[in-house]
Design a protein around this nucleic acid. Sequence first.
DNA 1: TTGAAAGCGCTACCAG
DNA 2: CTGGTAGCGCTTTCAA
Lengths: 350, 350
Amino acid sequence: MSKIQKKSFKNNKVSLAQIAKAAGVSKMTASRVLRDEGGFSESTRTKVMAEVERLGYVPNRLATVFAGDQKSTFVGVAIPELGNEIFTQVLEGIDRKLGAFGHQTVLGMTDHSLEQEEKWLETVLSWQPAGLIVTGRSHTPKSIQLLRGAGIPLVEIWDFNSSPLDMSVGLNHFDSGYGMGRYLAGLGYTKFGYVGTSHDTANAASARLAGYGKVIEDSGGTLQKQLLLRDTPGFYTGYYGTEQLLAAHDDIEVIYYQNDNMAIGGLNYCQKRGLSVPNDIGIAGWGDLPIASIQPYRLTSTSVPHLRIGQIAAEMVLSQINGEPQRRSHDVGFNLIPGSTVITREKLHR
Amino acid sequence: MSKIQKKSFKNNKVSLAQIAKAAGVSKMTASRVLRDEGGFSESTRTKVMAEVERLGYVPNRLATVFAGDQKSTFVGVAIPELGNEIFTQVLEGIDRKLGAFGHQTVLGMTDHSLEQEEKWLETVLSWQPAGLIVTGRSHTPKSIQLLRGAGIPLVEIWDFNSSPLDMSVGLNHFDSGYGMGRYLAGLGYTKFGYVGTSHDTANAASARLAGYGKVIEDSGGTLQKQLLLRDTPGFYTGYYGTEQLLAAHDDIEVIYYQNDNMAIGGLNYCQKRGLSVPNDIGIAGWGDLPIASIQPYRLTSTSVPHLRIGQIAAEMVLSQINGEPQRRSHDVGFNLIPGSTVITREKLHR
DNA sequence: TTGAAAGCGCTACCAG
DNA sequence: CTGGTAGCGCTTTCAA
């Protein structure tokens, strides 16, 4: 009695055993038919499939994974935030690729916090995922221990990382910041500004800022101010950050932003205040988001293959799952887009 | 031998039994400690926890779900696309709420296709999710059968739906389109345009268009052209869509877009072509995305609580899981934002 | 081509 | 406070 009750409480889902019984075969035979494993007659298949259809059988993959030495089809994917279009595109690349090969994305938003990442890792690993994709190269000691012990394919994305825990795909953020800095210095700019956001964790954006700062120093210019807001890097932050930056240093000639959305925010602030871009002030973003190319002026930016990073990450996981040999690190590179929101200083001085 | 081999092949993960043995207690006792169920001494706890730490034990939740009459902590979430900021925000709302209560989002991108949704449903249900959140109110017959048979909380989001399969949260899209139409007609506009995208499935955007069209008809104006592009509703599409629309009908006085990103694209096209907004042409978007409020002119739009839709959907699922009584349908409403990208026609005629 | 038995890691249930 | 036993739905192994 109590058993029956328990059973009915648990769920009234149709099980393999019920299918088998209804079709008048053993569980094993039914199982073989469902997995199309071969070794059964056509008439048996027909009987079994008829019952599957009739009873609306949905297999319990939990039991499958559990019974066999298989893995689940889950891939855990940790990204910092969804509010940021950049990561959203990476995620889309991942999910498309994964989905095409019958895998599912289990989402994890870390809010740029390593502690959140650790907490999420602990949970997601308990579900026996087939693989893991995490953003960034820094993790808590415990996270590293978990990652190491998991024994499943792992890809660290975003920062290019020549000695990853397992695999890695991304780009060199320092170089991309350096590249933009050199380009701007080459145009003759000497008084630089930066507007971005700050997080507890060392992140890729700060590597870009470091590269930018390095060039400025080397070229004899000055980084008048680097404003790091404790907020999400979006349009608003760019707008108000620019206001703050210019209030403190109105002699800044060019501003580099953490991303394009912030840059567009800055652009609009300048426009509103009556500053002409690029004549009065130069603007440079990062990421080459769609909005960058429909502005009246083409935004100076750095193009990054967001979707591709995601796709490659997913491919790396899938290949590893299938035991295919795999390169450990992949640098997708970046591309400086000159745009028209900065200008040669000489022109101005003429 | 073969057993041992199999075991070591399967995985070298630490199991409860190993912990128990190492700590010199039974599996049950170890299990109780780990679940903090009570009924064990402090010294036992210490011993067990020490082994957990030492061996790096990660519980196998698959087995837990499988053994008890529990559910997994997964919640399947199907959204049409990630490229669209609107759905991204909804997803963020969902994942934040879910995460705060120890649940995980299993993502499903349907690409606006009911077939994709059906395929995804079949897979995700086999993983015994604790709940389901899907976008839209229309599903294939098979999907409906699956949804009905799943016996887990289900929320249909986006369209407000007074008779959902289980629960629903969203807004009346027809009304929101109607509201914008009435507002514009009230300003004196008579020649209307619309730019959006089309999908195989009946979607919310077409309900908005229907509402918009209805007002125009009723007010004696004309919908000169409704352009439905087979593309993603973003900046680009708005830009080029506007170009196409105006090439065909240059007498259009105001354009309503499927969303703000498209509207901003249109705005920039107009600017580039030397058309003054709102004097030469009116622009109205939908969604009140962040970019709408940093433009030189405040974009006329409809504000929708994206994040809240997600949060409420997640709350509905969680409450249902916990057996709390739950309202079946929730209308989050919308809010017309007048903005300054449209203008009273009388002013122009003076 | 088919089936019976054993067991995956864990928890419910009962007995001590 | 503690432990033994049974069994979740499925697959593996071996035998028929």
